[in-house]
Simulated scan of single mutants.
Amino acid sequence: MRTCLLGLLMLFSGLSFAAIKTQEIPYESADGTKLIGYFAYDDAIEGPRPGVMVVHEWWGLNDYAKRRARDLAGLGYAALAIDMYGGGKNTEHPKDALAFMQAATADAAASKARFLAGLDLIKAQPQTDAKQIAAIGYCFGGKVVLDMARQSVPLLGVVSFHGALVPAVPATKGSIKARILVEHGEADSMVTPEQVAAFKEEMDNADADYDFVSLPGAKHGFTNPDADRLSHGEHGGPDIGYQKEADENSWADMKSFLKGVFD
């Protein structure tokens, strides 16, 4: 037995094991807003690799957004969950979340500046290939990444999960350079059929390279396992709900999309 254990120790001592490293990084937008980024990467990968930005839901930079950054790091990307509210603040109170979101979107230029500050931050990390950057977003964050694509921010691709579709600044013909993937819940009561139709028309008129996936029976927030709890929270909640199948299928779509974007 002792010989077997010694042999195993010798075998494993020569192996290196992947570990997801994370760190919080303070940064600042052009308007002076103090922000906090959550950076994740696999330290078993040598050299720069494609980077993916994560934009949080209207709840703010919470554990869910950070978990998605770690998930992306596990896929081999350099991932940065950015802060669109300032100070890394987050909440579980719908009224606070609404107020945070409205403040962040009141000025389209300021919102863009905060995103660009995050873009500069992920590009500056030694683990990131600055020429290969994409962005994903959830709920409020889905709208943010779509708006950045509309405004010609230099991204290779963006993915919106249960994001709002109404633009801050509508796309114009040729303005969208990034490839777009929208993962939308068919039972999302926060996005009307008219908004879906208007989005598709906007993308077609802009000659955008986009895919729009409708997920049967999925509500707003379908990717977040906390959605059911938050929809029935002590403060009352929005019409959101988790759906495991939609979550897994949309993540699989994203993986294929990112692979195509970065290849």
Rank of each mutant, 00 (worst) to 15 (best):
V169Q: 10
L155R: 00
F161G: 04
G137W: 01
E183I: 05
D147L: 08
V153L: 11
A164L: 15
G174S: 14
F140Q: 02
L156Q: 13
I176R: 02
F140W: 11
I180E: 04
S152Y: 03
L165R: 01
V159Y: 04
V166S: 14
A178W: 03
I180H: 09
S175D: 11
Q151L: 09
C139K: 02
K173P: 08
Y138C: 10
G141T: 02
A168D: 12
V159C: 09
L181T: 01
K173M: 13
I176M: 14
K143Q: 12
G142Y: 12
V169H: 08
K173G: 09
Y138V: 11
Y138K: 02
D147T: 06
D147N: 14
G137I: 00
H162T: 01
A171D: 10
S152W: 02
V169G: 07
A149H: 03
R179L: 13
A149N: 02
I176A: 11
V158Y: 02
P167G: 05
V158C: 09
C139F: 07
R179V: 07
G163L: 09
V145N: 03
I180Y: 05
F140K: 01
V182K: 07
R150C: 10
K177N: 13
L155I: 03
G141W: 05
V145H: 05
E183D: 14
Q151I: 03
A164Q: 10
V159I: 06
F161K: 01
A149D: 04
A164R: 07
V166D: 12
G141M: 08
V144H: 07
I176E: 04
R150E: 01
I180L: 15
P170I: 03
Q151T: 12
M148G: 05
R179H: 14
T172Q: 15
S160G: 11
K177A: 14
K173Q: 14
S175H: 08
G157H: 06
G174H: 12
V144A: 15
L155E: 01
Q151C: 09
E183C: 15
I176P: 08
V166C: 10
V158L: 07
L155C: 05
T172W: 13
G163T: 01
G157S: 13
L155A: 05
G163R: 03
G142S: 14
K177S: 14
I176G: 06
L165Y: 10
E183A: 15
L181K: 01
Q151N: 13
F161S: 07
G174D: 13
G137E: 00
E183K: 03
G157M: 12
V145A: 10
S175A: 15
V153N: 05
V159W: 04
V166W: 03
G163Y: 04
G157D: 09
G142E: 10
A178Y: 07
S152T: 07
A164I: 09
A178R: 00
F140A: 07
L181A: 11
V158D: 04
G174E: 10
A149Q: 02
V145S: 08
G141P: 10
L165A: 11
V144R: 01
L155D: 03
V153Q: 06
P170Y: 04
A168F: 05
S160A: 15
L146A: 11
A168R: 01
G142P: 12
Q151R: 14
G141H: 07
K143P: 00
P167N: 00
Q151P: 03
K143I: 03
D147Q: 04
V158K: 00
K177G: 15
K177D: 10
A149G: 06
P154G: 12
V158R: 00
R150H: 03
M148W: 03
I180W: 09
I180V: 15
T172F: 14
M148F: 08
